[in-house]
Design a protein around this nucleic acid. Structure first.
Lengths: 332, 332
DNA sequence: CTGTTAGCGCTTTCAC
DNA sequence: GTGAAAGCGCTAACAG
């Protein structure tokens, strides 16, 4: 049976108020302070955050709604968000949406019940209505990684379109003309990167036949099927841009199974650098996201809202990326 | 301002007790039930789990203490643990120990303060004393993946030693004699796998010179440095067993940088199958862990303890693994 | 089946 | 600087 503040009271003979004051960093006579500390050690007292939360209406907990916890990208983000939160004395209640909008919707209510002080969302859905209950409950929200078309929330993301556009120049300047794309169309990031791709092609005066435009889900299967389709085309592309980690993985699987080799048979440009891409041959050209900065900025923004330090309208922060140069692109 | 049970009371004219009963699935007159439901919808009422938890002394939340949230292995485990918990109406409060015993120790107190109903631990430390406060607080614990030498807790893990022993036969039967190992020595799994390796070698009548025994941390750097060391040996091994995902990654990085190729120059056997190992050439022989079963079993055990359904002493459950056959082993 | 009441562990006025 | 008392939102007896 864990001890409570009452036990400390019995032990020290002091009143609840004094002990509470001590617990919250208030001024207490040195001798009383000593008594209390002794009692705490003796009794192994640990504040009951539940009870505290009930009266302060603060749980010091931030909810994290993540589209899929198994994605390595999520792992990195979660790590950095967690670190930033820890530094500020907050914990995180992570809920995994499993890439499913239904689950995501339910998880929202769960977080509200848990009275989290704020929520960081890496959404599955593309529209913001699933967050209405949160808004109604007056809980601050920060979107991370993926923006919401109709959203009115703070958002931290990368410059998806520009990053893609820039990376595409690697292909273009090496004289590739027949460039295909495999992108997810379900979420914001996939669509933006697709747009960046198309802009780069347009500005380079290059055509993109519809059969070169493979749209799918954010999944390994999508990448695999997409690449397989591209590889069997009579007029096969010489290069392919893949819009995220999972798609890149699936696409490479397809290339392997087909007995082809990059960059000899096909050049590759991917998104979401993960160390593992460095251990394979060829090393793939990859757009790297600043996961640490993303996590930190999201936390910073959220805490500002939680503490009511800003009344400004929702802001959008788009961070730049860097390019990991590999050897997966052949010069034609 | 979120509405409370009192608002429902005002709205319906019923008493708190009746509403509470409804909320907890008790019998209520159909007409009252209708009234309450109307009020809940109208007022967007959502139970305050904090207040509920204070009186029931149950938070319906399980703490997860994970050695590192960025590891892909953790991601899989977390996913399955989360799913299993969800099905039972529990949420998870994940804390990332960042492979640091100090952080882990602090996180323990955090979870106690949060009054989680139970804790699933994938520990960093090898000794169990950091869990003493949890035991004192009467919170049930289940260890997952890694056992603790001096522990008295339920534990779900795999048959590390046997799995390694079995996988090693792939190397042995292909006539490899000079086999090295890179294993972490900090945690249980690394040590057990190391032992399995040594046993397999001994039973095959093979010697393992000390310079073939590379012990390090559970990290990419460890794998990289270890492999680099092995590759520069005058008497280079023909095959290497790597005890986990991160080490395997680092080791392959070293092979790549050295301009060598597996299996031609060196044969490889790894641990922790991840899809990405299938996308590279060669595909690496890998021991696969049953992450789903591990997560589910851990949750099952923990909930049994939480619900007081068993008074048995701590049990240890060791699940079997499977072997993913690749083409990273050359026959000599 | 419904209402009244007490109280979970803590913080927070407000006197002293 | 300290103590007494009220109350956060809910559940759990216990009467009715």
């Amino acid at each position: 049976m864990p001890s409570t503040i009452k036990d400390i009271k019995e032990y020290t003979g002091l009143s609840l108020a004094t002990i509470s004051k001590y617990l919250n960093g208030g001024n207490v006579l040195p001798e009383n302070r000593a008594k209390i500390e002794k009692a705490i050690n003796e009794l192994h007292y640990e504040v009951n955050e539940i009870a505290r939360g009930l009266v302060t209406k603060k749980t010091k907990t931030v909810g994290i709604l993540v589209f899929s916890i198994t994605s390595p990208f999520s792992g990195m983000i979660l790590h950095h968000v967690g670190q930033a939160l820890r530094k500020k004395g907050y914990g995180m209640l992570i809920v995994d949406s499993c890439d499913d909008e239904e689950i995501e919707r339910k998880n929202v209510n769960y977080l509200i019940s848990k009275k989290v002080d704020g929520i960081i969302v890496l959404p599955v859905a593309s529209k913001g209505d699933f967050l209405k209950p949160v808004k109604r409950a007056g809980i601050p929200v920060v979107l991370l990684d993926r923006a919401l078309a109709d959203s009115q929330y703070d958002c931290v993301r990368i410059t998806n379109r520009k990053s893609t556009y820039y990376a595409m120049q690697e292909l273009i300047k090496r004289n590739h003309k027949k460039i295909a794309v495999i992108a997810s169309e379900r979420e914001y990031t996939g669509r933006e990167r697709f747009n960046g791709f198309m802009e780069a092609m347009r500005d380079a005066g290059l055509e993109v036949p519809v059969e070169y435009q493979v749209r799918g889900k954010h999944s390994i299967a999508s990448g695999y099927n997409g690449m397989m389709k591209l590889l069997t085309l009579k007029n096969r592309p010489t290069a392919v841009f893949m819009s995220n980690y999972e798609i890149t993985l699936g696409a490479m699987l397809a290339i392997n199974e087909s007995g082809l080799k990059s960059p000899d048979d096909i050049s590759l440009l991917g998104f979401d650098d993960q160390l593992f891409f460095h251990v394979m041959q060829p090393q793939v050209y990859m757009v790297e996201q600043p996961t640490q900065a993303m996590g930190e900025k999201a936390v910073e923004l959220l805490l500002k809202r939680i503490n009511g330090e800003t009344q400004d309208g929702p802001m959008e922060l788009a961070l730049g990326t860097s390019l990991h140069r590999g050897n997966s692109i052949k010069t034609l």
